[in-house]
């Protein structure tokens, strides 16, 4: 136990920062919003990292699962009054089932071809949901406040229901709930990385032939990665819907959303559990700083800076910022050793 805590010391420091910042230096709605976005996108980034970072199958279509999560929980809440806590699990199962059916044979595709296929899946979902009248078609679904959803309940009951329905009139509790979920996802991903499954995923990423030669069925392990990844992405989608309070196909399914998951992870560190959270922090901090600097929407300046940053980082170190950190660590470590000798 102590060993594990020692190994994940940076994670504990990060967690502490995430707990403290919202109640100390960042006590504004603006900062709270940014932190919630960081956590949601980092969560889905972790999911994307499982299939693309660890297993090496680049997906450009994770918005598909993200959107399914958002739609499932919202539809269940709005139409059937089922709490999003259950809704996110249902959404996760549906997303995982979709991933299983779609990729059962699609894993025959490799490299770029696979990436294009994943892209298509998300685009198909976008088209379906923007035409499907039962889920609001082009209008999307706006989530009604909890008091409006079930009329005639008392104030204390509303407070309880707010927890149950993940309502975000009060941002701080929602922020901590999202944080707790992110921590859970982080722990799951870290545990997977250190298990047999994680080793097998990495072996598949490095070489299909080697994986087969040591008794790994690549298709099964890729499917497993994709399904777990889809499940987590759907949960992220539910949190997004609960936070944004409005969803339509253009908000949750477009390629730009898929690319956020890719970019934050690639910037932070591909195939590293810290990657998505580091990348998301940088992405959204940039957004916040640029907005403060220029006023209003930030006039897209953050996009320019972020674009430059990602080009710079990936050119110098393909493993992202965590790769650079590792390199510095190795150098320091090497120097220390040299000094001792």
């Amino acid at each position: 136990m102590v060993e594990i805590l020692k190994k994940y010391r940076p994670a504990l420091v990060l967690l502490l920062l995430f707990i403290l910042i919202p109640i100390t230096i960042g006590r504004t709605t603006d900062v709270h919003n940014v932190i919630i976005y960081i956590l949601i996108y980092a969560m889905v980034g972790e999911a994307w990292n499982l299939i693309s970072g660890f297993t090496g199958q680049t997906s450009f279509g994770h918005a598909a699962y993200f959107g399914i999560g958002a739609y499932t929980s919202t539809v269940l809440l709005e139409y059937y009054h089922i709490t999003p806590w259950i809704g996110m699990l249902v959404g996760g199962v549906i997303a995982a089932a979709l991933a299983f059916v779609v990729y059962f044979n699609m894993f025959k595709l490799k490299g770029h071809y696979f990436a294009i296929a994943t892209l298509c899946v998300a685009e198909i979902m976008k088209t379906i949901f923007s035409k499907w009248t039962w889920v609001g078609a082009g209008d999307g679904i706006a989530l009604t406040p909890i008091t409006g959803l079930i009329p005639g309940v008392g104030k204390s009951a509303v407070a309880k229901l707010a927890w149950l329905s993940l309502d975000v009139r009060n941002r701080l509790p929602f922020l901590y709930t999202t944080l707790a979920m992110f921590v859970l996802v982080f722990i799951i991903c870290a545990a997977l990385e250190n298990s047999r499954i994680g080793f097998y995923w990495k072996a598949i990423r490095e070489s299909h032939e080697v994986a087969e030669s040591i008794g790994i069925n690549p298709r099964n392990y890729k499917l497993l990665a994709m399904c777990i990844s889809a499940f987590i992405a759907a949960i992220g989608g539910t949190f997004f819907a609960q936070f944004f309070k409005y969803i339509d196909a253009i908000t949750v399914f477009p390629m730009s959303v898929s690319m956020i998951f890719v970019l934050v992870t690639v910037l932070g560190g591909l195939g590293n559990v810290y990657g998505p959270i580091i990348g998301a922090v940088i992405y959204y901090s940039l957004d916040l700083i640029m907005r403060r600097l220029t006023g209003g929407s930030g006039s897209g300046l953050d996009q320019i800076v972020f674009g430059a940053l990602i080009v710079l980082v990936t050119c110098t170190e393909p493993r992202g910022i965590m790769g650079i950190v590792e390199r510095i660590q190795e150098k320091l470590h090497g120097k220390k050793k040299g000094g001792e000798a």
Binding site: R196, F199, Y200, K202, A203, R205, E206, S207, V210, I214, G215, G271
Partner: peptide
């Protein structure tokens, strides 16, 4: 397996 250490390479086999 390039991105894995020597030990991890061998462990991957041992996981069978």
């Amino acid at each position: 397996l390039k991105e894995m250490t020597v030990e991890e390479n061998v462990m991957t086999g041992a996981f069978l």
